[in-house]
Simulated assay, not measured.
Amino acid sequence: MHRSESGALTRHLLEATTNAQQTQSLAPLCAFVHSWAVFVAIERHPERAARLRELERIVDAGEQDPAEAIVEIRSIREAAEREAGL
């Protein structure tokens, strides 16, 4: 895990923990685990991770119709969820 990813993980965990305490619910922690399990499943495959970043750039740039990119992003995330057992 890169340093920036480690920092993001720590920030997300702290935010989830704070939200869980404030709401007295485990839902924020469950969302944290889900999010990071998907992230890890995607990053385990460098080609897939690179493709996801490229698709996200296409959507963010707004220079072309993002419909196909969005469909492929969903497909990548759904595959990662299955791999993570979610």
Rank of each mutant, 00 (worst) to 15 (best):
A37L: 08
A27G: 02
H45Y: 12
D65I: 04
V71K: 08
E56F: 07
E56R: 15
L13P: 00
A69N: 04
H34Y: 10
I76H: 00
A79F: 03
T23L: 13
R11Q: 05
T23G: 08
L14R: 01
V38Y: 04
S25I: 04
L13M: 04
A8C: 06
R57L: 09
E81A: 14
E5C: 02
V71S: 04
R44M: 12
A50I: 06
R3Q: 10
P66T: 02
A41L: 06
L9Y: 15
E56V: 13
L86C: 07
P28D: 02
A31E: 14
H45A: 12
S4D: 13
L29M: 13
S35D: 14
A80L: 13
Q64T: 15
Q22R: 15
S35M: 07
P46K: 05
L52F: 09
R51K: 14
I70W: 04
V71L: 10
E15N: 07
E78H: 06
T10L: 15
A61P: 05
D60Y: 08
H12N: 15
R51Q: 14
E5K: 09
D60L: 14
D60E: 14
R11P: 00
R44H: 09
D60G: 11
G85I: 05
G7Q: 08
T17S: 01
G7L: 15
E81Q: 15
W36E: 10
S35F: 05
I58F: 02
I73G: 05
S6K: 14
P66M: 03
R53D: 11
R57W: 10
V40H: 11
G85R: 02
H2L: 12
R74V: 06
I70D: 01
A20S: 15
L26I: 12
A41H: 05
L14I: 01
I73N: 00
P66G: 03
T18P: 00
G85M: 08
D65Q: 12
S4W: 13
E68K: 11
A49Q: 08
V40M: 07
V71W: 04
H12Q: 06
E47I: 04
S35L: 10
A69E: 00
I76P: 03
R57Q: 11
E5M: 10
A16L: 08
V33L: 15
A16D: 01
A69R: 03
I58T: 15
E43K: 11
L55K: 00
S25A: 12
I42F: 07
Q21G: 08
A61M: 05
T18R: 14
A41D: 03
E56T: 11
I76A: 03
P46F: 07
L55Q: 00
V59P: 06
I42Y: 03
G85Y: 09
P46I: 04
R48G: 01
R57F: 09
A37Q: 05
V40C: 08
Q64C: 10
V38A: 03
L86M: 13
I73H: 01
L29N: 00
R82N: 06
F39W: 09
